[in-house]
Design a protein around this nucleic acid. Structure first.
Lengths: 240, 240
DNA sequence: TTCGATTTGTTCGTATGTATT
DNA sequence: TAATACATACGAACAAATCGA
């Protein structure tokens, strides 16, 4: 394995340990080079990959920081819902349910826990311009979020992933969405004020943190009459 | 603008001109460095970005090549349809219609042409394991594909994007999918052998080549009973 | 098969520029 | 202003893969 890969792995290990607060910088290039006994160029090579993967951000003159948990960045990265033909809009979240439960077989597999283990189940309704557009059903391992209560959850001033990060030191770095079209059941029909049987977009998502560790499983129903799920493949290229 | 960016732009310009055949390598680092009067390291910096963007591939000892039009690579990159909970499967394509038409307002905007301009309209049914899973409606500018006939199209031994590349020198490098849930109309119901009104996943895609030039607009209906559209955000990170 | 030339991959070190504190 | 930290650029050396003589 090349040295820059080894350095990168070690950096990720440190970042995922939660020892680095979101606000203070990592050691400088020179310090890291000395510590790992490699040249500054090798540190840069490792850092360049971490930047490309949105794990860290670097600022000239300031330093290198863990990618921030700001709503702006997280929405931009993990919120693929847009007004049809238009831009992203910020939803208002209503928490409908917040309860403890036990993991069934499917959730247990998704979260990498054992069946019957305690989980939290959170249901949210998301409104844009007063109209219900999304309905969320989130399941997380109870053990991964000690001390999380409904009060703290609804009092958060951040996105859910930002909340995971700032309050529990858990960085969501990757999500996998499985998309299907489904017919609205009675619950969904009522929530979206549409006839039962209407077509809805269903997203079953698993979010991961470092080391491929699952953080949450989330089932989302999206009313795509006015909004849509937008996916860009190859969005990196910006060569006029 | 940094010099490596300028070099990169120039490289993209050359690659998009179609002068580089898919099989022969670009000039070597040393040659490019001499030609652009920069160091080899600067050439590498530009190349690294092009590799990250899947525009070129590099092989130690061989050289640098335009990203190949192989079905393997293109399916892996631009085909997000998987068996539910399973892996990607290769569909069989039936071309149902191949005809000339005129661009309506929506297509004209998507393809960056003027309303009424001649287009090709291609409808395909895609089957996996004998079952119809997708229905495609593809629209491309007639002028962009001179000499394209139904015979050549159905005789192709490649994916459509591979065909664009190998026969017309057009590299698809980015696609934007707009996903909605819709109710099956009579046409779709018949094709998929499902009741009219069933929920289907609709993808409206625009594919782009270099310089943000649109290549095709494609409306796809997906029967997500057994298959699904899968989207990974942050798939770059592979740090155990 | 072996060998040598070619080409990219990795690592090092240095110098200079630019943004931040 | 001065010190700090990242950004850009250059050059050099060696390693590893490829290919043809």
């Amino acid at each position: 394995m090349p040295r820059y890969k080894a350095v990168k792995l070690e950096l990720v290990r440190v970042l995922s340990s939660g020892e680095i607060s979101a606000d203070d910088p990592l050691p400088t290039e020179k310090q890291l080079a000395a510590r790992h006994k490699v040249s500054v160029g090798t540190i840069r090579r490792a850092m360049d990959e971490l930047v490309a993967e949105h794990v860290v951000v670097r600022q000239q003159g300031r330093g290198t920081f863990l990618a921030p948990f700001s709503p702006e960045r997280l929405l931009n990265r993990f919120w693929p819902v847009f007004r049809r033909g238009g831009s992203r809009e910020i939803p208002i979240v209503q928490t409908l349910r917040f309860e403890e439960a036990q993991a069934d077989a499917e959730v247990a597999v998704a979260l990498g826990i054992v069946e019957g283990e305690r989980i939290l189940r959170i249901r949210n309704l998301l409104l844009i311009d007063g109209a219900p557009v999304l309905m969320d059903d989130v399941r997380v391992s109870r053990a991964m979020f000690p001390g999380l209560s409904e009060e703290r959850f609804v009092a958060r001033e951040n996105t859910m992933y930002g909340f995971y990060g700032s309050e529990f030191g858990i960085s969501v770095i990757r999500v996998v969405d499985h998309l299907h079209a489904v017919a609205a059941d009675a619950d969904a029909a009522r929530a979206f004020r549409i006839p039962a049987g209407s077509a809805l977009l269903e997203s079953v998502r698993v979010a991961y943190t470092f080391g491929d560790r699952p953080v949450e499983q989330r089932r989302t129903l999206i009313h795509t009459k006015v909004y849509e799920y937008r996916n860009v493949i190859g969005g990196e290229l910006r060569t006029g």
